[in-house]
């Protein structure tokens, strides 16, 4: 199933104002893998994600999604294959009601109206918010917004899910609910995050970014145990791996 593969080769990108975004990155993510992208602020996580759905085009290097190299000709198919969940759900929920929002993608794909209704219902049920269908997005709580945003992406039936800080600004309960939900997905997942505990729970592989470069790429547990590497990349051990300050002062 080569169409679930994400391949990045010597990727460079410089922003129009001259800031370097990515300085030569290469990796290959296989079908069904769940990969965490971690790194300090400004390490290039978001810039990298924007390349994966073709919003930014590489200054140098190559991006390949499945059998399709990233090019204007393939944009449509790439955007269908790669479902992107944005950091701020308000950016992603732009229609007047939850239903319209989830239906937006399928309608653009040209599906029949009856099928669209079914897809919307199913996508909302998967994320557990089917009862919010008629609500306007601005009236939802942060957790609900996030769930609906994920439903809008699921409705496009992508093969690869790309998420930018999915657990940011969620309360602890919503956060664990989201993690449990994401674990049930069998998609190839690429998750950019500062929430290293989530990364540890969800992703067997981690890619560490620092100043637009990959400083490490390997099994999550091994990387999070390497304190020097984490410190060099502006990171700290996940809380779960730090000793309990009360039990072991």
């Amino acid at each position: 199933m080569s169409h679930h593969i994400v391949e990045v080769e010597d990727l460079h990108y410089t922003y129009p104002d001259g800031t370097a975004g990515l300085n030569g990155m290469s990796f290959r993510i296989l079908h069904g893998e769940s990969v965490a992208l971690v790194g300090a602020n400004g390490a290039g996580k978001s810039t990298l994600l924007l390349h994966l759905n073709g919003y930014l085009s590489p200054g140098r290097g190559k991006v390949r999604i499945g059998d399709h190299p990233l090019s204007p000709k393939n944009l449509k198919i790439i955007r269908r294959t790669v479902g992107m969940v944005f950091q701020d759900p308000d950016d992603q929920l732009f229609m007047p009601t939850v239903f319209d929002d989830v239906a937006f993608g399928p309608l653009n794909l040209g599906l029949a109206e009856k099928d669209v209704e079914e897809i919307v219902q199913k996508s909302l049920e998967i994320v557990g918010v089917a009862d919010l269908k008629k609500r306007p997005p601005y009236k939802l709580s942060g957790g609900e917004k996030r769930s609906v945003a994920i439903a809008t992406v699921l409705a496009m039936s992508p093969d690869i899910l790309v998420m930018d800080e999915p657990t940011a600004s969620l309360d602890p309960r919503s956060r664990s609910r989201l993690i449990a939900l994401l674990k049930t997905f069998h998609h190839t997942k690429i998750i950019a995050t500062h929430d290293l505990d989530m990364a540890m729970e969800m992703c067997e592989r981690t890619i560490v970014l620092h100043q637009g470069k990959i400083t490490a790429d390997g099994p999550t547990l091994k990387i999070f145990q390497d304190e020097t590497l984490l410190a060099q990349s502006g990171l700290e051990k996940p809380l779960k791996m730090q000793g309990c300050p009360i039990c072991n002062p």
Partner: peptide, 22 residues
């Protein structure tokens, strides 16, 4: 900035200049 991000979100879901409402 936000407009740009919304546009991006719309493009990601196949927006082609026409809003379809069921």
């Amino acid at each position: 900035d936000r407009a740009q991000r919304i546009h991006m979100a719309m493009r990601c879901r196949g927006f082609d200049g026409r809003i379809r409402v069921l």
